[in-house]
């Protein structure tokens, strides 16, 4: 029986050697490829079935990877955004003439009526009540409460916030407030005043809280109020309230209080000059009069004697325009 098999074996060996010989020729290689392509669909199906499991596993792994990368991407984007913001702030700080304290918004009041927020600077950073708070874009609010580490800021979107403003183009004055659905509104502007859509509204410096010339908004809409005596000018605030993360607290300087303010009304220009006299108290001397606020009492306890200003009677001069 094996003898027959042996003969077949040698026959097959010879066939294999012939195949090896043919395989090394151009014709053999082409034939090999052609024959191989006949079975390719089978290979494809088997590969597909087996790869199905592999692909499922890969899909799971890749999904996890995508989630991870998306998270990383978000972190990078957030960092980039923060970086851009900080760059803007640095640039603004360099070009402004005010003495500024940079601060970060720690939290915001969730109550939509109350537009207040908490910042990470307080008494320890020389922040005091009524200090104006601004951003690179314009007015943001003012400090209402101060603790050692933090300060509460009443933003421009608070219903009780008021700031004296004027039209940058012609000096027409008014008071900016926040009115719910209407948003930022410039009130107390006489009807028939020269005010146009797109006019820039800036702080007038009246009220002694905000310095003069800080941007507040642009005129978006002009309406007449119920009394029909005044315009109600809707403004588009320059400051992006919801997006703001970093603010500047404007530190008041003694020399800033000494200034002249010009009012233009009914053909007359009124010059009001306020002069201050600086009185520096020695820490050894007891203060002559009790300071009104609790804050000042605490400062006394710590041995810090704030600078006091004695305001002289203002001199008013009228002059035809």
């Amino acid at each position: 029986m094996w003898k027959v098999t042996d003969r077949w074996f040698f026959g097959l060996i010879v066939l294999c050697i012939i195949l090896i010989g043919i395989g090394s020729t151009e014709f053999g290689k082409k034939t090999q490829i052609r024959l191989g392509s006949i079975f390719s669909p089978f290979n494809g199906w088997v590969s597909f079935i087996f790869n199905e499991f592999k692909i499922r596993h890969e899909n799971k792994v890749l999904r996890a990877k995508v989630s991870e990368l998306a998270l990383n991407n978000q972190i990078i984007r957030s960092s980039q955004y923060e970086n851009e913001k900080l760059f803007d702030l640095l640039e603004f700080k360099a070009r402004t003439e005010y003495e500024l304290i940079a601060s970060r918004i720690v939290s915001r009041d969730p109550n939509p009526i109350s537009g207040t927020c908490l910042i990470d600077k307080g008494l320890a950073d020389e922040v005091r009540k009524d200090f104006p708070v601004i951003t690179c874009d314009g007015v943001y609010g003012k400090v209402t409460e101060v603790t050692k580490e933090n300060a509460m800021v009443q933003t421009i979107s608070d219903f009780n916030f008021r700031v004296a403003c004027m039209n940058l183009r012609n000096g027409i004055q008014g008071i900016v407030r926040w009115e719910g659905g209407k948003g930022c509104v410039l009130g107390q502007v006489r009807v028939n005043s020269d005010i146009q859509i797109g006019d820039s509204i800036v702080t007038s410096g009246l009220g002694s809280i905000f310095p003069k010339g800080v941007a507040v908004g642009k005129v978006r809409e002009i309406n007449v109020d119920k009394t029909k005596l005044f315009y109600e000018v809707a403004l588009e605030p320059t400051c992006k309230l919801g997006e703001t993360e970093y603010v500047f607290i404007v530190k008041k300087k003694p020399e800033r209080l000494e200034k002249s303010t010009v009012y233009k009304t009914q053909g007359w220009e009124i010059y009001q000059k306020i002069e201050e006299e600086e009185i520096v108290q020695s820490p050894l001397e007891k203060p002559k009069k009790r300071l009104p606020s609790v804050l000042k009492e605490k400062e006394e306890e710590r041995g810090e004697f704030p600078i006091e200003f004695k305001v002289k009677e203002p001199t008013i001069r009228l002059q035809p325009q």
Partner: peptide, 12 residues
Amino acid sequence: DLYSSSLGYNAL
């Protein structure tokens, strides 16, 4: 061998 680089060796 049809899918190998050289024909005949695997058969052999």
